[in-house]
């Protein structure tokens, strides 16, 4: 049974066709690398999967049930969490408030529910510690953190709340070597927990390190699915660049 399946998905923006006839499946405990040149449709596909852009045509299934994702909230309710390229953090807000943004923990006082700030501070600190990040103060604004630290918070948030599918859009592009190691480690950990992981990157070495399968997009269409065990890095690289359709 596929965890997430797309059938014949297309997405147009006016006259521009961003995605065409995409068939796609993700299974539990699988890491799928989504590859393609700039403008190939990777980010559009991610935004279809996370409910930001409802598809113009085609069907989506979650655990074999037909679903319609009309907002990011719908995707989150299914347990699909995303680390966006721009991280989706609010710089002026604290670490804890960013961590719980949109699903704040509240305490009930009669008919009123007020934010439980102590619980959120402690929860965010603990969740970050779990993946090896120690923060000084959960009330510190995100604006004061480094790029790597911000990335860690976005990933920790997705790992903490995502139960079924984890989507990462170029999570290592702004990171140092050491930080990149950590991120690849998180992907492996999510896979071990039985989650499905979709991972967009330009770094083919990373694909071969953690992914089970590579899906390549070109000009809004799918070139194919390639089990990592059966292809070489060079073959993948030339297909991404579109030089030739090498046999695999």
């Amino acid at each position: 049974m596929a965890l997430l399946q797309l059938k014949n998905i297309g997405r147009r923006f006016g006259h521009i066709v961003a995605l065409k006839n995409i068939d796609f499946a993700l299974h539990c405990g699988e890491v799928l690398a989504l590859l393609g040149d700039n403008g190939a449709g990777k980010s559009t596909l991610i935004k279809v999967l996370t409910g930001v852009y409802p598809p113009s045509e085609g069907e989506m299934y979650f655990e074999d049930k037909l679903i319609k994702l009309n907002s990011p909230q719908d995707a989150r309710d299914l347990g699909i969490e995303t680390v966006y390229q721009d991280l989706a953090l609010v710089p002026s807000m604290s670490i804890a408030r960013n961590f719980y943004l949109g699903r704040e923990r509240v305490a009930q006082f009669g008919p009123f529910s007020l934010l439980n700030r102590t619980a959120m501070d402690a929860g965010a600190t603990a969740a970050l510690r779990e993946i090896g990040i120690h923060i000084r103060n959960a009330r510190e604004p995100v604006a004061r953190l480094s790029g790597g630290e911000r990335q860690s918070i976005a990933i920790a948030r997705a790992l903490h709340f995502g139960s079924r599918v984890l989507i990462l859009d170029e999570p290592t592009s702004a990171l140092s070597v050491g930080e990149t190691r950590k991120v690849l480690g998180y992907i492996a950990a999510a896979k071990a927990k039985g989650m499905g992981v979709i991972f967009i990157t330009h770094n083919i070495a990373h694909v071969f390190e953690v992914a089970d399968r590579a899906t390549i997009l070109s000009h809004g269409e799918k070139l194919g699915d390639f089990p990592i065990a059966h292809v070489t890095q060079d073959a993948i690289a030339s297909m991404v660049m579109g030089k030739s359709e090498m046999e695999v």
Partner: peptide
Amino acid sequence: ATGGNAQAARLQG
């Protein structure tokens, strides 16, 4: 959140 980064707020539901 809406004033701080509307796009991020929308993506977080």
